[in-house]
């Protein structure tokens, strides 16, 4: 019995699909990944060679205050966003037809509208002598502090992130087999018990995805905080903008960008055990 020499035969040439496959990754590598290397280079060469920018970032009291404030604002906004988004996702997926449609509209109109327009809406409501203070005054609650403060920033960020957080939760909830819930009811579990003991645990993967996503989004975000904080509530991402364009401190801005990136990847890495990247993206 002769055996042919085991020469591995390559797939027949299909250069067309090979070029199609690689066009985008190559472009992104050149136009996105390589510039990161350049940015990292800036961060250790401007204004002069050395790690002084990083030293400054990690030891300067001003930066520590900014980091601390950023972490605090992001945690609080995430903590507020998640329950609101869970509630909406629940009614979107499980609600009766009309209610589900209403919820869907409430989620998707803001989702598609520019973050600037949404921030502007909150400016109108929250600024000094804006709508909110008018209402407060009408109820005799004069002196309610509104305007450019940390709570305005948090309100705007929550408003920005709720629609995003709804999507991964809803996609997980949609996969929950309703017969499992009926089975639990049939086994004598009370409705609230079914929710706590069956539905909530089954929807947790979506909650984890939403958590990581919300936190990551809020870290790198500067448009809403800059408009609603008005320079009084300075967060990390905003500092990058300020360092680059207002104080022309490119090295420091670049170093901050790198630090943010590392922070995001650290969070992703930590949360990898409970979620997969696709879940983060799918709706």
């Amino acid at each position: 019995m002769m055996r042919a020499q085991s020469t591995p035969v390559r797939r027949y040439a299909a250069t067309g699909s090979l070029a199609m496959l690689w066009a985008l990754p190559v472009i992104l590598t050149l136009a996105y990944v390589l510039p990161f290397a350049g940015v990292t280079l800036w961060s250790v060469t401007r204004p002069e060679l050395g790690l002084q920018n990083y030293v400054r970032i990690f030891t300067g009291a001003d930066f520590q205050a900014i980091f601390f404030r950023t972490a605090w604002v992001c945690l609080v906004s995430t903590a507020i966003t998640i329950p609101i988004a869970y509630l909406l996702a629940y009614y979107w997926v499980m609600g009766s037809g009309r209610r589900s449609r209403l919820v869907e509209i409430c989620i998707f109109i803001p989702f598609w509208i520019s973050v600037l327009v949404r921030a502007f809406g909150w400016v109108v409501i929250l600024r000094n002598n804006g709508l909110a203070s008018d209402v407060a005054n009408a109820f005799g609650l004069g002196g309610l502090s509104t305007g450019r403060n940390v709570w305005s920033v948090i309100t705007g960020m929550v408003h920005f992130m709720v629609p995003f957080a709804v999507l991964p939760m809803a996609s997980v909830m949609r996969k929950i087999d309703r017969r499992v819930l009926l089975a639990a009811l049939g086994l004598g579990c009370r409705p609230l018990g079914v929710f706590w003991r069956i539905y909530l645990p089954m929807s947790l993967p979506g909650v984890f995805s939403a958590l990581a996503m919300t936190f990551i989004f809020s870290l790198g975000f500067f448009v809403t905080p800059m408009i609603l904080g008005g320079g009084r509530v300075v967060l990390t991402a905003e500092t990058v903008f300020v360092q680059m364009f207002q104080t022309a401190n490119w090295g420091l801005g670049a170093a901050l960008g790198v630090v943010l990136l590392v922070a995001v990847f650290a969070i992703l890495w930590l949360s990898q055990r409970v979620m997969r990247i696709e879940q983060l993206m799918s709706r």
């Binding site: 042919a4 085991s6 035969v9 390559r10 027949y12």
Partner: peptide
């Protein structure tokens, strides 16, 4: 699918590498 080794003929013609 490409074969790993051996030959494959169709009506006498070796088609191992034909798309």
């Amino acid at each position: 699918e490409m074969l790993t080794s051996g030959t494959c003929r169709i009506f006498g013609e070796d088609v191992s590498r034909l798309p």
